[in-house]
């Protein structure tokens, strides 16, 4: 029924695909985290010249399919001659750069909204108290708003991490040999769909639940004050 020989034989290829998928995820997630912090500040700003453009950006990137965004960057930009003749062309010809750009821009849009939502939930009293203590706006952002917003955003951010992990499978459409492309190659070479895609499913499953577990650990550390209290005083002391 299941060809275990084929699975054992293709495991090294999957292992390489796993590393590529994880690397892709890592560079996208770090870029989107760095970008989304200032964008979220702009998004919640009272100044419409700051908040409206960011809203437009997140709306467009959240309202269109990631696959189309990737195609626009990887296949689409070649249409412009000025770009083909510019110094940046070697970058835009590279599938890795295009996938990174598309996934990072897409994930930044979602992360910005998550973070902006968490920022808006800050109790007004905290900001007033900070201001009455004479903190500057920059200090308030650094000491009061950002630390509590990042904590509040953690559960949703965990979902976003899983989404980015799953989105990296779309990179298989632009020649990057990550996990899904590996599975598709194994399938095309052996016509064994259950083995090829079943094995890759096991890999994705393992990564997803590792990620979920890591986020749970972070939540236990940073959202400790929100944990349900135990009724048993002995357990509470421990």
């Amino acid at each position: 029924m299941i060809d275990w020989g084929l699975i054992a034989e293709s495991l090294p290829a999957y292992w390489r695909g796993l590393q590529i998928s994880l690397l892709l995820m890592l560079i996208c997630v770090s870029a989107s985290f760095v970008l989304s912090v200032p964008l979220a500040f702009a998004r919640v700003s009272a100044n419409p010249w700051l908040s409206k453009p960011v809203f437009l950006y997140t709306y467009v990137f959240r309202g269109t399919p990631l696959l189309v965004q990737l195609y626009m960057i990887y296949f689409g930009l070649a249409q412009f001659e000025w770009l083909r003749e510019s110094a940046a062309w070697p970058l835009f010809r590279n599938a890795w750069f295009c996938a990174w750009l598309a996934f990072a821009l897409n994930s930044t849009a979602y992360t910005t909204e998550i973070l902006a939502g968490a920022l808006r939930q800050t109790p007004n009293g905290e900001v007033e108290a900070a201001r009455s203590l004479g903190m500057s706006t920059a200090t308030i952002y650094r000491r009061i708003l950002l630390p509590s917003a990042v904590r509040r955003a953690l559960p949703q951010y965990g979902n976003e991490l899983v989404m980015v992990m799953h989105a990296t499978s779309i990179a298989s459409a632009v020649t990057i040999v990550e996990l899904t492309r590996t599975a598709r190659d194994v399938y095309y070479n052996n016509l064994a769909p259950v083995e090829a895609f079943g094995l890759v499913a096991v890999f994705y499953f393992a990564i997803t639940f590792t990620l979920v577990g890591l986020v749970k650990l972070l939540e236990r550390r940073f959202l400790r004050h929100l944990q349900p209290k135990s009724a048993d005083p002995a357990a509470a002391r421990a």
């Binding site: 799953h166 899904t180 599975a183 598709r184 769909p193 895609f197 994705y204 997803t208």
Partner: peptide
Amino acid sequence: IRGLPELVLLLLIFYG
């Protein structure tokens, strides 16, 4: 369902 990318499920169901 939540543990797998949509594309992988799609390929698994379509070819499998």
